[in-house]
C-alpha cells in the first residue's frame, strides 16, 4: 500500500516582494527578483508549491572596510576602494543576481560622507550595474534620516529594497520608500512581537504590508543561530495561520554575522567560507528568502545547494 503523507493546510500565505524594476516597469534593471509567496513551512514541497527560491545578494560597501578578514580582502583586492568596480566584479565575475550596498562611510565614526555624495554614488551604481539593488543605511539614526531619503530619491522608480526601519526610527525611511516606490526592510531584535509591531506601524503609515521584508536579526552558527531559527519558525507559523502582519519574507544578513566569529579568524582560510555556507543552509531551512552574503565561494555552494534542494521532487 502506498504511503499516504499527512499534509497541513494553511490559511495564510507569505507575501511576494519584488526587487528591481525592469524597463517595462519604467525602471532600468535587466531582471526582477521575487521572494516570498510560501504557503507552507520551509521545504515541505509536498504540502504546497514554493513559487520562489531563496535569492542571494552580494554585500558591498561604499568605503573600503577596515575590519574585513584577509580571506575576503584576497577575493576583492583593489576593488574594495571603489564601490563601482566592486559592484561590477560581483556581477561580471561572480554572476551576482543582486547587490546590497551598505552606506557605512556615511556613519559619523567612519568618515561621515554626506548624503549628497552617497546619493550620487547610488545614481552611478545604478548606471554601472543592472541587477536589483538593496540599499542599507549606516546604522546611525540621525544620519540615516538624512541619508536614506537622499538615496531613496536617487533610486526612484527602480523598486529597490531599502533599510533598515527599526522600532525607534521608522517614519522617515517609510515615507521615502512610499514616495519613491521602494520596498522596506523592517529590522527587529530576534523578537516576533517587535517584528509584528514594526510591520503594523509601517503599514499604518500607508506602506502596504506586501512591500515589507523582515530582518529578524540572526546569529551565526554557534552564536545564537537556534534563537533566530525558532523566531523565524514562530513567525512563519503565525503568518501561515493567517496573521498578515507577520507574513513578510525574511532577509538574513549572513555575511556580516559569519565573518566576525572567532572560527572565521583561524589559520584555516576555508573555515570562514564553511561558516557562511553552513549558517546559510540552516537559515534557508528556517525560511530565509533573501541572503546577503560576502564570499563568492560560499555563494557558489549555496547556489548549488538551493538548486539541488528546490529541484528535488
Amino acid at each position: 500500500m502506498a504511503l499516504q503523507l499527512m499534509t497541513e493546510r494553511w490559511s495564510g500565505k507569505i507575501s511576494v516582494v519584488s526587487i528591481g524594476a525592469t524597463k517595462e516597469e519604467l525602471g532600468t534593471r535587466t531582471h526582477t527578483i521575487r521572494i516570498g509567496g510560501e504557503e507552507s513551512l520551509p521545504c515541505l514541497f509536498q504540502e504546497a508549491p514554493i513559487p520562489n527560491k531563496p535569492a542571494i545578494a552580494f554585500e558591498i560597501w561604499d568605503i573600503a572596510p577596515s575590519d574585513w578578514l584577509d580571506e575576503l580582502n584576497k577575493v576583492y583586492g583593489n576593488v574594495l576602494n571603489d564601490p563601482l568596480k566592486w559592484a561590477e566584479k560581483c556581477v561580471k565575475e561572480f554572476k551576482a543576481q543582486s547587490l546590497c550596498i551598505k552606506m557605512q562611510g556615511a556613519h559619523p565614526d567612519f568618515g561621515n560622507r554626506s548624503e549628497k555624495e552617497e546619493a550620487a554614488l547610488v545614481k552611478e551604481l545604478l548606471k554601472r550595474v543592472s541587477v536589483p539593488l538593496i540599499i542599507l543605511g549606516c546604522g546611525d539614526d540621525t544620519k540615516d534620516n538624512l541619508l536614506l531619503p537622499a538615496c531613496s530619491e536617487a533610486a526612484k522608480g527602480e523598486r529597490c529594497l531599502i533599510g533598515s526601519a527599526v522600532g525607534d526610527n521608522y517614519k522617515t525611511i517609510t515615507a521615502s520608500a512610499l514616495a519613491d516606490g521602494h520596498s522596506l526592510i523592517a529590522e527587529s531584535p530576534i523578537d516576533i512581537n517587535i517584528a509584528k509591531q514594526l510591520n503594523i506601524l509601517i503599514s499604518d503609515m500607508g506602506l502596504p504590508l506586501e512591500r515589507i521584508v523582515i530582518n529578524p536579526t540572526i546569529g551565526a552558527l554557534g552564536y545564537g543561530l537556534e534563537y533566530a531559527y525558532s523566531i523565524m519558525e514562530r513567525a512563519r507559523l503565525a503568518a501561515l495561520s493567517g496573521d498578515k502582519t507577520v507574513a513578510s519574507p525574511f532577509v538574513c544578513f549572513v555575511g556580516q554575522e559569519t565573518w566576525r566569529v572567532k572560527e572565521a579568524k583561524t589559520d584555516h582560510p576555508e573555515q570562514g567560507i564553511i561558516w557562511e555556507t553552513l549558517t546559510s543552509t540552516a537559515l534557508i531551512q528556517a525560511g530565509a528568502d533573501l541572503l546577503v552574503m560576502r564570499h563568492p565561494k560560499a555563494v557558489e555552494k549555496i547556489d548549488k545547494y538551493i538548486e539541488e534542494l528546490f529541484n528535488h521532487k
Binding site: D191, N193, Q197
Partner: peptide
C-alpha cells in the same frame, strides 16, 4: 511582550 503595544500586537 505582545501586550506592549496599543492595543495589542495581535
Amino acid at each position: 511582550m505582545a501586550a506592549l503595544f496599543f492595543p495589542h500586537t495581535d
